[in-house]
């Protein structure tokens, strides 16, 4: 007891001087960041060449806590920022880490277009079914029946099924996990880091302060237990069938893992084919 020891192995991946972070007790975002640090280690990527881009939200704060070149952009626009960054500097591995509201509500248009173009970025979406940062408003992921401050009588809009949205928009890698499935998350993130093209990982995570409390679902730990008990892993499941329902069964797994030329590749191929040696790429 009390022996000086090596610092936590995730430390080199963190801006330790910025700890403690702003996330609430039992918030799942930190757990996923922990997994991400391990995925970075597993991927063996040179960290100087990994850049992280976030939008705005509780999850949007991830960029600021990681010891990488990091960009905390505007609400919803992490993906187009990342697109410019990646195209200007193709040797970077560019990761977008943001919330469900950020990526899918205000940023939804960018999400589908980046997937369509197959921009070589990895998009990690922390889905807590709610707008955390602004105090618990309804999101395009909020399940029907769940309440939020702006859906006080329960959400009556059909939410997006994110893996289906990602796949049908053109993503080459699509997976869903919960914050309980830490080893799966870490491996999936490492997979995505290695993969070329638009990769998407949805991670369900507790927001005990807002979503769980407002819906009387207990605290973070209670939610993690729920994830443990009510998740089934079905790799390769048809993404049409992986809808989420309020406190329903959760289908997890790696749903999509295909090859398709990236935006950069199709661009270069086209110019080379048409312009031949006039192409200055």
């Amino acid at each position: 007891m009390g022996v000086m020891v090596p610092f936590n192995p995730v430390e080199p991946f963190l801006r330790s001087e910025r700890m403690p972070h702003i996330w609430c007790s039992g918030c799942g975002i930190g757990t996923t960041v922990n997994c991400f640090a391990r995925a970075l280690a597993e991927s063996k990527l040179p960290l100087d060449k990994v850049a992280i881009v976030s939008g705005i939200g509780c999850t949007g704060r991830v960029a600021g806590y990681l010891n990488l070149d990091s960009f905390h952009t505007t609400h919803g626009r992490a993906i187009p920022f990342a697109t410019g960054l990646k195209l200007a500097n193709p040797e970077l591995t560019v990761v977008v880490y943001s919330g469900d509201g950020d990526l899918i509500a205000i940023g939804g248009n960018h999400f589908i277009h980046a997937a369509r173009r197959n921009v070589d970025i990895k998009v990690i979406c922390i889905n807590n079914f709610i707008y955390g940062m602004t105090g618990g408003q309804v999101a395009p992921t909020t399940p029907v029946g769940a309440t939020a401050t702006t859906a006080p009588y329960g959400c009556f809009e059909r939410p997006f099924n994110l893996p289906y949205l990602a796949e049908s928009s053109g993503a080459v890698y699509v997976a869903r996990w919960t914050a309980y499935h830490v080893r799966y998350i870490a491996h999936s993130m490492a997979d995505a880091l290695r993969k070329k093209g638009f990769s998407f990982i949805e991670i369900l995570a507790p927001c005990p302060t807002l979503y769980q409390r407002r819906n009387k679902l207990g605290d973070g730990l209670e939610t993690m237990r729920y994830y443990k008990q009510h998740s089934v892993i079905r790799h390769g499941a048809n993404t049409r069938d992986v809808n989420l329902h309020f406190q329903g069964e959760i289908t997890l797994g790696k749903f999509v893992d295909i090859e398709r030329p990236t935006l950069q590749q199709t661009m270069e191929q086209r110019f080379r084919q048409v312009l031949r040696d006039r192409y200055a790429g």
């Binding site: 007891m1 009390g2 022996v3 000086m4 020891v5 090596p6 610092f7 936590n8 192995p9 995730v10 430390e11 080199p12 991946f13 330790s16 640090a37 391990r38 280690a41």
Partner: peptide, 20 residues
């Protein structure tokens, strides 16, 4: 504890830890 750092693939900064 020093060799423990060798076990970890993730580095071995020794600053700031309180107890084992």
């Amino acid at each position: 504890t020093a060799s423990a750092a060798g076990v970890s693939p993730l580095g071995n900064d020794t600053s700031g830890v309180e107890s084992v």
